[in-house]
């Protein structure tokens, strides 16, 4: 039972990275391309963004119902970066909707757009920093140690910041590949192909930086990857996918590109899961919080699982219908007339 809950937790997190990530990345991409992408991004995100962000809610609910100590420990130690993420989420979601629904007028639109773009960047960065704090595990439960040690040290470090940068580039990359599939116009295809190439290169650099800063912070991330066979496999597969990605970018093969980018991101996330498991939160000066030590009693697990399975049975087909209805890139007759 616990395993199935963990798997659903993992899948939700992964889907949040893939779908929510492309959506955060949309804002960053607009920033990089100086607004050139904004029409495409808006049209692609609008019908699905609420549904995409539900995966985060699901992760949070599974945590506080199923793994309550994980939820409370992480939100105490990483209170500050999480607060920054939340403020970013508020600004981003509101600005995006206002831009979409407010009446057409230059100045307000420009303001909404820039809030949307900068808060997408800001939120993604601090999502990465928060994740970095969890991976690094410089978290203490001895609250007498003073403000800095308890509430700053876990996330205010080189590793967390490099992970922030990594996640920003990853999300922007996902959004670029996604956008490429949405446009047929030649100038756009060329521009986004170029951006995608730059992002791939920076992504590799940022990944290396994350490993290096981990060593710097005394966390042998490289060693951990090396010693876990599943992590190693996922790293190797993610690397093999790189040249494939490059070739398909050259050929502008949209479906393949999406597939490979999704696969690569999945491998990165799975690699992380594999080194983390079965520890959920590392504690600096105490006992690590593991799946075993934090899982809720059986009666709770059972009810959670029932709700999740019913949810999966209802949500997945319905979600598929949503995506099918808005076969992206295609316009209805009316929309073509309008544009």
């Amino acid at each position: 039972m616990t395993e199935i809950i963990l798997i659903i937790l993992g899948i939700s997190l992964l889907l949040y990275v893939l779908l929510g990530g492309a959506d955060f990345g949309g804002g960053i991409l607009e920033l990089i391309s100086r607004g050139k992408a904004s029409g495409i991004v808006s049209r692609a995100i609008a019908p699905v963004w609420e549904a995409n962000h539900m995966w985060l809610i699901l992760v949070v609910v599974i945590l506080f119902v199923g793994f309550p100590t994980v939820y409370s420990t992480v939100l105490t130690a990483l209170h500050i970066p999480v607060l920054l993420v939340l403020i970013g989420i508020i600004l981003r979601g509101s600005a995006f909707t206002f831009r979409h629904y407010d009446i057409e007028e230059e100045t307000p639109k420009a303001i909404y757009s820039s809030i949307f773009r900068y808060s997408s960047l800001f939120t993604t960065f601090f999502l990465g920093v928060t994740t970095g704090g969890i991976i690094l595990g410089d978290i203490t439960q001895d609250y007498s140690q003073g403000f800095y040690a308890v509430y700053m040290n876990p996330w205010l470090n080189w590793f967390s910041f490099s992970l922030g940068i990594f996640v920003v580039i990853l999300f922007a990359f996902l959004a670029t590949i996604y956008t490429l599939g949405e446009t047929k116009e030649k100038s756009h295809v060329e521009r986004f192909t170029r951006i995608a190439k730059y992002l791939i290169i920076t992504l590799v650099v940022a990944g290396a930086l994350a490993f290096a800063t981990a060593e710097l912070e005394g966390h042998p991330l490289f060693f951990e990857f090396y010693h876990s066979i599943p992590s190693m496999i996922s790293v190797v597969l993610a690397t093999i996918a790189l040249p494939l990605l490059w070739i398909n970018l050259k050929r502008n093969n949209r479906q393949m590109l999406r597939l490979i980018a999704g696969f690569q991101t999945t491998m990165i996330v799975l690699g992380w899961f594999a080194i983390q498991f079965p520890v959920l939160v590392k504690i600096n000066d105490g006992v690590d919080i593991t799946v075993q030590s934090s899982i809720a009693p059986r009666a709770t697990q059972l009810q959670l699982l029932i709700a999740l399975i019913v949810g999966v049975l209802v949500v997945f087909p319905y979600m598929g219908y949503l995506y099918k209805t808005f076969k992206f890139g295609e316009k209805t007759a009316d929309e073509q007339k309008a544009s």
Binding site: A51, M54, I57, L58, V61, I62, F64, V65, G66, A296, T300, Q303, L304, A307, L308, V310, G311, V314, V315, Y318, M319
Partner: peptide
């Protein structure tokens, strides 16, 4: 947590 888990499905 049970109502929250169902609420998640309803939100979705």
């Amino acid at each position: 947590g049970m109502p929250f888990s169902w609420e998640g499905t309803a939100f979705f």
